[in-house]
Design a binder for these strands. Sequence first.
RNA 1: GGCGCGGUGGCAGAAUGGCUAUGCAGAGGACUGCAAAUCCUUGUAUGCCGGUUCGAUUCCGGCCCGUGCCUCCA
Length: 469
Amino acid sequence: MSPPPIRFFNTLSRAVETFTPLRVGAVGIYCCGPTVYHYAHIGNLRTYVFEDVLRRFLESEGFKVTHVMNITDVGHLESDADEGEDKMILAARREQKSPWDIARFFEDAFFADTAALNLRRPTIVCRATDHIAQMITFVKALEEKGMAYSVEGNVYFDTTKFLTYADFGRLDLAAMQEHARVDKDPRKRSPQDFVLWFSQSKYPNQIMKWDSPWGVGFPGWHIECSAMASHYLGARFDIHCGGIDHIPVHHTNEIAQSEGRFGDKWVNYWLHGEFLVLDKGKMSKSKGDTLTIETLREHGYNPMGFRYLCLTTHYRGPLKFSYESLESACNALETLRNKKADWESAPLPSLTEKDHAALDVYRGQFRDALAEDLNTPVALSVLWTCLRDEKISDAAKLVFLKESDVILGLLKQPESLSLTAEQENLITEREKARAAKDWSRADELRQSLEAQGIILKDRATGTDWFVKR
RNA sequence: GGCGCGGUGGCAGAAUGGCUAUGCAGAGGACUGCAAAUCCUUGUAUGCCGGUUCGAUUCCGGCCCGUGCCUCCA
């Protein structure tokens, strides 16, 4: 009996569909990446965790995955002056850093964060500023097809030329117009038309600008994704991911541009991640409550606990974040780590036939959970059930723990620091005390190290240490 | 106004037309050095009102509540 097919919820149809790639054995995925003018917050990162698991799962299914992610490093930096919230930008400006330096700084910070969450780096990371030529080509092509118009140096996409514009987001354009929160740009013919190329910036001190057939300026907000995705993945590809907020505008516009240019279905499957929410709704910069990986560390939590927390929720449902739930996730993760360390430190027997049989069942359940629209909570529950199965050996459990972790990605060691000589001494002294059965002295030393954030684990092979959390 | 998501035990969070995962926390116990780790046992739940059904948390309708997007936003 063949396993159930891989199925994903496709925003195009708003239904779970069987996944069939365009090419046998290969999958192309484009994921909308970060805007690098601030640190990523944990809500942003949740979406990247989902995409990472998607990629790992498809790879485990034998696909060669091309995972493309853009870096939005072009923008309107000068407009940030009146917001004045981001200390880094202010500092960079004070030090007369260029927007490019700032963008690079936050790009590096982004990948440091994703590394802390054990996210695999996309196979292709592409910066918008490195692909201005592709964007210009793209806009020219739209112009030639009569899908764009120029007014006073700005080029706009003509949404009336793309008859299915409202379909993807199921938009009621008339209703939206009535409740528009932003004044219409008088140069636009239709309210939903959007800019492909700006030569008339609303920001007088625009620093990042490029020459173009329409004047010196910079690209519109949506064109980079269409240009880079089609550049790396072709005029048609398998999967496009992003946050759910992208459906009504960004992805709607991407589809309009791309199908406007290529004249055919652009992306087969659109997968969107729901938001992470706080008690009072989503976090936002204006409310001053954005949480970053660094914030979690400051509260004493290991970033990997956040990865675990993400996996306990299905990607299409909101994740209610609280320190209580993060604590719970960290504790669960800690147990997984302890089990792994315990089993690895002791010699284990080889697997029995019974072990093999049970493992096959667990592997199947685990795989099928993920195949059904990436159900990580169920996959985790399969893992725990296996780990607490009295009928199989620890050796078998260790095998499954490691196998499942190729996709879950939870067991990467926390960033460790090396011990000071003094800390090393304390451990050695404690070993001596234990050998002498001086338990109170041993515990005293343990507590002393714990106060410094070092947790000791006595194992069959000796004493290990971990950084707390 | 339009388009979405959610309301399950103390917390997080799955699934399912009947027998309701999983983790954390709490309680009790085992082991151990009265330590750490690990293991075992254990209580409590499906927003409200109707309908369909032998039977609904699950399907349908209505309501209430929360929340997101529609402006760069994961």
